[in-house]
């Protein structure tokens, strides 16, 4: 059977199955189990209404439980076993990681990424959002800077290969270097700095995201506060840094944390550009070097990523909780 046909059947079966489930289960509860008639009609309606939310939630809860909750536990347990999964070895995988030079490189590089990428993207996004705010062609400019968000990390990496490649007839960067009279070099093999060249790719992608969100936040600032500041003689920079930025601080933090989480997940760029060579490994790509080879170590690395994300997760939940109240 061709995959496309299989896909079409899946859509029909999947969507039809879901809709059928919701419709039939409702019918079953209303008509058969707790029918809204007979001597206990009031009690039956109450019971049916108590059950219904769970009918609506069941498929989602099953999928979430199986595909996101179970793996957190399953991964942790798996990380306590050896390579083939037959022998319990406690925290040996973790201590092996701690001793590994590569893991330390990956961890430190990831730390650099978390430090640089969210900061740079948020800052650039904020600057672009502010600059395009009153521009007549601002929406066109924003749309073009936002465009990389639609491009896959693999596609973006290839795009940037045409900037970084050593051959000055292909790589724009080296063409400029040669034009200025310097010898061409491979930016991706420069120790330490190559990390930053890779980060540029993610910053290029994420600036648009930050810009869109922050631009909406800037629009939401009450006009009076800005007018008052201008009447008091504030210059444009003071208006921006003293009046606008403090008012959108909450949004800036949200953007920052969202990009931080993304940074901890993206392995595509490193994988495509350097394959983790030349000291550019980060945790997600480091995990993939063990995937299919040593599940014990792979899950241990994944769990380390989870531990790093955990504080953000807790913070997110508390924020959401506050807003609901």
């Amino acid at each position: 059977m061709s995959p496309i046909l299989q896909g079409l059947i899946t859509i029909v079966v999947g969507v039809g199955g879901c809709l059928g489930y919701f419709w039939l289960s409702n019918l079953l509860v209303d008509r058969v189990i707790f029918p809204a008639r007979g001597p206990r009609i009031a009690q039956n309606i109450r019971r049916a209404n108590a059950i219904r939310p769970w009918l609506f939630l069941l498929p989602a809860m099953l999928a979430l439980g199986l595909y996101l909750v179970y793996p957190v536990i399953g991964s942790f347990i798996r990380s306590l076993y050896n390579r083939s999964g037959t022998e319990f070895i406690g925290l040996d995988n973790y201590s092996r990681l701690a001793r590994s030079e590569d893991f330390r490189t990956a961890f430190l590089n990831n730390f650099l990424w978390v430090l640089v990428v969210p900061a740079a993207s948020t800052f650039l996004g904020l600057v672009v959002a502010q600059l395009t705010d009153r521009l007549r062609w601002g929406s066109v400019a924003k749309s073009l800077i936002f465009m990389p968000m639609a491009i896959s990390f693999v596609g973006a990496s290839l795009i940037w290969k045409f900037v970084y490649t050593q051959d000055p007839d292909i790589g724009l960067l080296n063409a400029i270097r040669v034009g200025l009279g310097a010898a061409p070099l491979d930016p991706l093999q420069l120790p330490f700095w190559n990390n930053f060249f890779l980060m540029v790719i993610l910053i290029w992608i994420q600036t648009g995201f930050a810009m869109v969100i922050l631009s909406a936040a800037l629009r939401g600032i009450p006009e009076e506060t800005i007018e008052a500041a201008i009447l008091d003689g504030a210059n444009p920079f003071q208006v921006f840094f003293r009046i606008k930025v403090p008012q959108i601080m909450g949004t800036i933090v949200v953007v920052w944390t969202t990009i931080t989480i993304l940074v901890l997940k993206v392995f595509d760029i490193v994988y495509t550009m350097t394959g983790g060579n030349y000291g550019t490994e980060i945790l997600p790509s480091y995990m993939m070097t063990f995937m299919f080879r040593d599940d014990g170590v792979a899950t241990a690395v994944a769990f380390v990523i989870m531990l790093v994300v955990l504080p953000v997760m807790v913070w997110n939940i508390r924020q959401a909780h506050k807003e609901m109240r």
Partner: peptide, 22 residues
Amino acid sequence: GLLIAAVVGLLVVPLQLALVPL
């Protein structure tokens, strides 16, 4: 409320964790 909080929490679970067990 608890379920909503759980959904918010699951938003940031790294995919990497899900690969091997699934």
